[in-house]
Design a protein around this nucleic acid. Structure first.
Lengths: 177, 177
DNA sequence: TTGCATACATACATGCATGGATGTATATTA
DNA sequence: TAATATACATCCATGCATGTATGTATGCAA
């Protein structure tokens, strides 16, 4: 193996991330060594250490590949042009439904996304360096809940939902689901 | 340290389990060594290996201390005398509510139970030996769902719930909650 | 074409964690 | 009371994972 062009290097980086995901899934995050990941990606640990400073940075990179698209999709589906009053597609409850269906769709179509979620849920111990990861995830979640809340507030002001439920409650419930 | 009486030994065993829970919580299951647990319990690894063959057995023992009472409570609260037709306290929906409130109560009162749940949820990677643990947990869950289902079936036959929802659906929903 | 940066591979030192072997003092039992 | 089982503590060999240091061949820019 010798020096590659920038595009090749980016491919290698991606191969490492994919390898990490697959090994994480079967071995668990803390039990996979960077050596195993490297072998699975047909490189050596040198390459892994070149692209990522350590395992948690690699984990973080893997995570971002599914979270950033999620955030984008939320912004698009849920919040974009929410203030245009006379937009038929902008009905708040329809937006929520669309977003949830989109989420299921993604989980159906992309096994990579499924795998990443499974790793985050039952193959990772959120301690030490990973505690900050958990913090980030929770921050993300409260961001998600907040966005739900905005949409529900809109629905509320339009009289689309029962006044017995506050937007915050509805948002939390939807998120739990 | 020298040989103790059987009661002393049982105390030591319990101290080890408690120590394990506390260290698991802060360090995560895979990152805590039996040495750390031993130190935290004021014994040596020799004692730990005497009472438990390895880490996963220790984990299993810790888990049983919260799951077995849960199962018992389910049987008592949910299922006991469910077939006595004219028992006022045996109303199916009331049973469900009582059980859920009891669960919250336990989580409120026993920080040990809270800690154990937190460990099982975000401080443990379910792979290899622990994959069987996950399997057991899932089995337990389906057992739980089944019991919910029985109660809902009873409620159904009494006309207490809308016929639009099957007992299975209701059970799954309650369990998710 | 030279020189430096890049993209890795290889080698090495270090540090636990594990599990088993062994030691040992006491409780228990026959 | 002698023999044995119990409840640990201590010690040791082994292996693996990490991080870093170093080697090296190539792409790229001046």
């Amino acid at each position: 193996m010798v020096r590659k062009t920038k595009e090749d290097a980016e491919l290698t980086r991606q191969r490492i991330i994919n390898a990490a995901r697959e090994v994480f899934l079967t071995k668990g995050v803390s039990r996979t060594s960077l050596e195993q990941i490297a072998r699975h990606a047909n490189v050596t640990r040198g390459a892994v250490y070149w692209h990522f400073t350590n395992k948690s940075e690699l984990f973080h990179a893997m995570r971002e590949q599914v979270f950033l698209p999620l955030i984008d999709r939320m912004d698009d589906t849920l919040l974009a042009n929410i203030d245009e009053e006379n937009n038929p597609a902008a009905d708040p409850l329809t937006r929520i439904e669309n977003f949830l269906q989109g989420t299921v769709q993604v989980l159906n179509d992309h096994q990579e996304t499924r795998q990443t979620y499974e790793i985050m849920m039952s193959k990772c111990e959120y301690v030490d360096e990973f505690a900050t990861v958990l913090q980030q995830i929770l921050n993300n979640c409260s961001g998600v809940v907040e966005k739900f809340e905005q949409v529900y507030a809109k629905a509320h002001s339009k009289g689309l939902v029962s006044v017995r439920h506050s937007p915050a409650e509805l948002a939390m419930d939807t998120h739990l689901f």
